[in-house]
Amino acid sequence: MTAPAGRSGPGRAAAVRLGRWSVVALVLASAVGLAAFGWPLLVNPEAGLAHATDAPLVLGVVVAGVLLVVHLALADGGMDVKAVALLGLLAAVGAALRPLSAGAAGVELVFTVLVLGGRVLGPGFGFALGATTLATSALLTGGVGPWLPFQMLGAAWVGLGAGLLPRRPRGSAELVMLAGYGALASLAFGLAMNLSFWPFTLGSDTALSFVPGAPLGDNLRRLAAFTVATSLGWDVGRAVTTAVGVALVGAPVLRLLRRTAARAAFVPAVFVTDRTAEHVADGSADRVPERVVDRSADRSTERPATGEPLPR
C-alpha cells in the first residue's frame, strides 16, 4: 500500500528548491516587477511612455518576459514531477474555486489557497503557484487580458511572501499571522493593480487622472480618490474573504498540505546493499544502516554521482 502518511512531517517542505542563482533571479525579477507596477510614480514626464495610453501594454510585455525567464530559472534549479503535479492540481483548485465564489464582491478564495500553499510548500513553490493559478483561471474562465502578467506577478509575490513568513509561529498564532498576512497581501494586490492600470483605465482628461510629472503627493491623492471611487469595495471584500477563509479552514488545510508534503516528499530513498538486512527487517528505518546508497537526489535535475543509467 502507499506509504503511511500523516507522520509529523517537516513544517515546511521546499517543493521547489531555490539555489543561489534562482534566488538572484527572483530578486532581480521582483525589482523589475516593482518598477513596472509603480511606473506612474517613477516615469520621467519627458518619456514617451508617460503619455501613451498603452504604457501598461508595453510594460505588460516586459513583465510577461520577466516571468517567463524567472520560471525557466525555477524549473532549471530544481522542480520534480511531484512539484509539477502539485502545482497543476493546486492551480486547478484555485480555478475551480472561482466560479464557486463568484457573485459576491471580491470573494476570492484563491488567495487563501495561495497563502496556505506558500506557507507549507515554500517560497519558490508559492511564487510558481501564484503565477500558474492566475494564468490557469484566466485561460479557463476567460479573463485573459493585458493585465494578466501583472496579476500573475502580484499573485506570485503573495505566494512567495507567505513562504518567507517566520517559521516559528504554530497553532493559533500561525493562523493569526497568516490571516493578517492574507488580508494585507490581498489589499496590496488590489492597490498595486490600480496603480499600474489607473492611467490606462481612466485616460487623461479627468480630475482624478494621472498627470505625468506632477508632484508625487498629488498623483497619490488622485490615485486614492480613484481607488475609493472604484475598486475599494472589491479590495476590502477580497481581503476579508482571504482572512476569514484562513481563519475558518486554515488549520485543516495546513494539516492536509503538510500531510501531502510528507507523503510526496520527499523522504529519502535508501537502498541497502546488504542482502540479509535483518536490521532493517525488524528495526525502524530511521536508523540508517551503514552500507547504503542514498538516492534522494532524485528530485533535482542533477544526477546522483553513482549509477548513471543512461549513456550520454
Partner: peptide
C-alpha cells in the same frame, strides 16, 4: 518504491 515513495529497500 523507494524512489518515489521514500523508505528503505533492502535486497
Amino acid at each position: 518504491v523507494p524512489h518515489f515513495s521514500g523508505g528503505t529497500l533492502a535486497g
